[in-house]
Design a binder for these strands. Sequence first.
DNA 1: ACCAAAGCAAGAGCACTGCTCTCGAAATAG
DNA 2: CTATTTCGAGAGCAGTGCTCTTGCTTTGGT
Lengths: 232, 232
Amino acid sequence: MNTVRGARERARIEVTAAIKDEARRRLAAEGAAKLSLRAVARELGMVSSALYRYFPSRDELLTALIIDAYDSLGAAAEQADARAHAAGAPPRDRWIAACEAVRAWALEHPHEYALVYGSPVPGYSAPADTIGPASRVGNVLIGIVRAAFEGRGLALPPLPPALGPEAGRMAAEFAEGLPPAVVAALVAAWAQLAGLVSFELFGQFQGVVEERSAFFTHAAGQLAHGVGLPAV
Amino acid sequence: MNTVRGARERARIEVTAAIKDEARRRLAAEGAAKLSLRAVARELGMVSSALYRYFPSRDELLTALIIDAYDSLGAAAEQADARAHAAGAPPRDRWIAACEAVRAWALEHPHEYALVYGSPVPGYSAPADTIGPASRVGNVLIGIVRAAFEGRGLALPPLPPALGPEAGRMAAEFAEGLPPAVVAALVAAWAQLAGLVSFELFGQFQGVVEERSAFFTHAAGQLAHGVGLPAV
DNA sequence: ACCAAAGCAAGAGCACTGCTCTCGAAATAG
DNA sequence: CTATTTCGAGAGCAGTGCTCTTGCTTTGGT
C-alpha cells in the first residue's frame, strides 16, 4: 500500500537515492572503472563503511545504475516512438525516430551507455533484474514492426531454412504473431543498431565518418529496410 | 638491418615480450579492468617498480596489448579471406568467411576483443599507433567489395543526396575508386558486424538467440547483401 | 684497459581502493 | 520500558598505480 512506515524507512530510500545520484554523477565524470565507493561516500559526507548498509558491494551499486540506465534509455526510445506515432508518421519514420533517440541518449549519457552496451565489467554477470528493463528498447522496435505488419506494408526478409526453427522459437517467445523471418531480422537489426552507436561513441569512427548524424540516419533507414519496413 | 645490438637490447626486448605475454594471460583470465601491473610483475619474479622501465604506465601496457589485438584480429580476417579467395569463393562467401573469422577470433579472445571494440577504458583515448592495425579488418572488407566491383557483380546501395559529399570524401580517403554509396554501406556494415559480435560476446543475446553460429552467418549474409554483394 | 655515463632492479613509501569487523548510539517493536 | 534491530563511525587488511632513492651492472668513449 506504500504507506509511510516511519522516519527510518523514509530516510533509507532517500539515502539510497542520494547514493545512486552521486554515483551517477561520478560515473558521468570518470567512467565506470573509476567509480569508487569511497569517493561517493566522501562526497555525501559519510564514511565508506556506512555505504555498505545500502549496497552490499560495488557491483551491486553498478547493477542498480545499469537497471536505471536501461530504464532511462528505454523510456527515451518509447517517448520518441510515441511522438512519431502521434504525429502520424509511417513505420519507417517511427523506426528511424526510435533509433535516433537511442543514439541521442547514448551521446548524452556515454558512460551509462557504455555500462549497459559496452564491455561488461569483468567477472560480473548481469542478474535477472536487468532483463526486464533491458528489453524495453527491443520492445519498441518490435511494436513498430508489428504495426507495419498489421497494417498492410511489411516485406518479408529472406530466411534460410536452417534458421527456420530458431526464428520460429524467437517469434513465439517474445514477438508472438510476427513472421519468423521478420523476428530474425529484427534481432539482428537491434544488435546492428547498437554497433553503429557504439562505434560512434567509442571513437571507432574517428577519422572515418565526419557527418555522424546524417550518416546514422541513413544507416538507420537501411536497418528499417532490412527488417522489411517499406520505404514510403 | 635488425642487427644484433648487444645483450642488453636483446634482454630488453625479451623482457618486454615476457611482460606482454604475462599481461595477455592475465587479461584473458580476469579482464582489462583487473589487469594489475603488480600482479604481472609478481608472476615474472620482478618487483613492480622495475616494470616501469618497460612501460611508463598501465595505460601504455594496455595500448601495446590493444595494438597486438588489432593485429591479431586483422591477421585472422586476412587469412580467412585469403583462404576463401584461393578456394575460388565468390565475393559473398569471402565476405561471410571474413565475418565469421572476426566472430571466431572474438570468441577465442573475448577480453582482447572487449579491449578494442568494447567501451574504451575511461579517460583513455587511443593514440595514433593504433589506427594502422585497427584498419586491417576494414581493409579486408574493402578488398572483397572491390573485387566484386572490378568483376561484374556489385549492386549499388541507395544513397540519399545529402550524404553524397560525405560518402565521396570517405571513398576518396580510404577506398579510392569504389562508388561512394558502396563505401557508405561498407562503413555501416563494419560497425554493424561489430554490433553483432559484441552482442553475442557481451551476453546481450542470452535468452534471445540460441543458435548463435547459424544466426550470425545469416546476419553476415544480410550485411553482404546490404553492401551490394550479389547472392550468387 | 679504464672510467664515466647510462640502464636497470630493488625497496620504501604515498595516496588510494574494496571490504570486514567491532563498537556505541539511535530508532523501532513488543 | 525493555529488547531488538538498524545504522554510522572508526580501525584495519590486503591490494592498487606510481614515484623516488639507492646501489649494481652493462655499455661506450678515450
